[in-house]
Nucleic acid binder design. Structure first.
Lengths: 336, 336
DNA sequence: CTGTTAGCGCATTCAG
DNA sequence: CTGAATGCGCTAACAG
């Protein structure tokens, strides 16, 4: 392995001078810089990050921890975050917690032992508190994306849950719906709580009444909605929902599937709209009405805030960035 | 920061003993092991991977480099690869080359300086050769997934391009198609080359003739297929293709979109089938006939071979694992 | 079974 | 502007 000593010997300088060249120290004469750079190229030298990190206490390594790598919403966040990280000279480690707090915990341990400079995280939920405290205890800066955890203060980049929910409800109300159901994520996750509250508020704004039996709490990755749909359809016609808001793309898609299995036609009998587009690829068979959150920007801005924390250029107070969604109206909410 | 010295002092042993406990060395008495483990827990000690890697020359870090993080085919490979890595005690760094050889090059440099133990890679194409040589020169083991590079020997885990292509063509021939087009990826990528050859062979097997004007070479991420579709439709009816095979999900979806824009009905006027399912989420509006490659298994087995290389338990000769696809027939190839 | 010595590759600190 | 000494946290190789 080629080290700074090898370069130093060949260039007739001290190792320290080589180190200065590598780190773009200004205290180097143009002549020696050029000489050393030539030898570095010639010997195909690559600095050892471990050795560097061991002494300098920084690794230029950040991590993004997401709860579902199969969900295009999160992979798009990853693209944004990675672009910003690379632009700023950081390398990004991507972790997938699979919505499991213990898997997240193992990841945090790995990150701690790998000495990442900071962590961008969409926590699995309020149960993530101990994991985040562990980061805080070790003084590793972290920033929330998409979700935050109650009781811990950090920057947050997310979609605007209140405004987005309001748009979805207003769109459905405009279509004449008066009984709208919400199939939500677990109340242990901040955005599910916010969407629930925003949903109730939005109903009021649209002059509608809230019905407890139309507020369903499930999981963001639950894959069967047959029971829920069956319960809805078993209600008396006047009590039955004519529209459903799904709290994410996965719930939206699987609700559609359950409706289809039960031969309930969409949008004729029930309309469906959801948060986040399920399409990673430009839609070829557009169907589902969605409020698309700006996932790329959420990732990008989250990473930007994280890097500012790492480099100490962030204000002391934590910042909350809420980005607006785009309502994309498609067939699932518009009767022919 | 808590180090092995702090633990050693508190447990009244030498730092070396602590190191042995951490590394599960068998040469430790049960009594001291328990004593040291208690102190480790008490002080909430986490080993420093950098220091460890600096001396032991292994980091337990592997990397997966894929060309498109937005494509569900590759994220599914990532899930499989990560599961295997974590099971084997490795941490996985995910890199996204965006089908750009120079971005891939920068990633390889980062991986080299981060001292990863091995790399699982779907190269951007034959142009990746210098990047891979750089890994080889530094003795970093690597394994190919999905694609390989001509002129460099390494293990490979991929779908069975020959058999998969044959299935797609046979399915279309069974539906009575006699003029089948192939919209392929660049010939600089191994699987595009293989699919092209397999396509020609499959036509012969099905008793059909190959028409050069129906063999199109594009990019795996090209997003407009209007020109190609227009050219097809401009052909005399007898020369016009009645079916299209797309070499990946992205091409398939965007070809459908182009057909739709030109008001060509699918499957009545033209049938479409492609490699890889575009759906990351169980399909809710099934339409496109696909040959779904076992992406999870490709990632899993690729990582398994990589770890065997790293740990020296692999045979000297390189291995090629080809996994069969599943043909999923949907509306885009079956007339009502 | 346990401890001692040495050094991994680099950057910080202090001298020139 | 350049260099020498020192140590980051850990483990290999040897000794007991």
């Amino acid at each position: 392995m080629v080290t700074i000593y090898d370069i130093a010997k060949k260039a007739n300088v001290s190792p320290m001078t080589v180190s200065r060249v590598i780190n773009h120290s200004p205290a180097i004469s143009e002549a020696t810089r050029l000489k050393v750079e030539a030898v570095i190229r010639e010997m195909d030298y690559i600095p050892n990050k471990q050795a560097r990190g061991l002494v300098s206490k920084e690794t230029k390594l950040v991590s993004l921890v997401i709860p579902d790598i199969a969900n295009p919403f999160f992979t798009t966040i990853a693209r944004g975050a990675e672009d910003k990280a690379l632009q700023s000279g950081y390398q990004m480690l991507l972790g997938n917690s699979d919505e499991q707090t213990d898997k997240e915990c193992r990841y945090v341990d790995l990150l701690l032992s790998s000495k990442v400079d900071g962590v961008l995280i969409a926590p699995t939920g309020d149960a993530s508190l101990p994991n985040l405290r562990k980061l805080a205890k070790r003084r590793v800066p972290f920033v929330f994306v998409d979700r935050y955890v109650e009781g811990i203060d950090a920057d947050l980049a997310s979609g605007d849950n209140v405004e987005t929910t309001r748009e979805l409800v207003a769109h459905l109300a405009e279509q004449g719906h008066r009984r709208i159901a919400l199939i939500n994520g677990p109340s242990g996750i901040s955005n599910a709580r916010e969407r629930r509250q925003a949903f109730l508020d939005a109903l009021v704004l649209s002059g509608l009444e809230a019905c407890p039996e139309l507020l369903i709490e499930t999981h963001f990755r639950q894959d069967s909605f047959s029971d829920i749909v069956r319960t809805f359809m078993a209600l008396a016609p006047a009590a039955r929902p004519t529209a459903i808001v799904a709290a994410n793309n996965f719930i939206g898609v699987n609700t559609l599937r359950a409706l289809k299995e039960m031969n309930v036609t969409v949008p004729d009998e029930i309309s469906v709209a959801c948060f986040d587009d399920p399409e990673p690829i430009p839609d070829y068979n557009p169907f589902l009405t969605v409020a698309a959150q700006p996932a790329y920007d959420i990732g990008y801005m989250g990473m930007q805030m994280l890097i500012e924390r790492i480099e100490g250029t962030a204000p002391a107070r934590s910042r909350k960035i809420m980005l607006p969604s785009t309502l994309i109206v498609r067939k699932s909410t518009v009767k022919a």
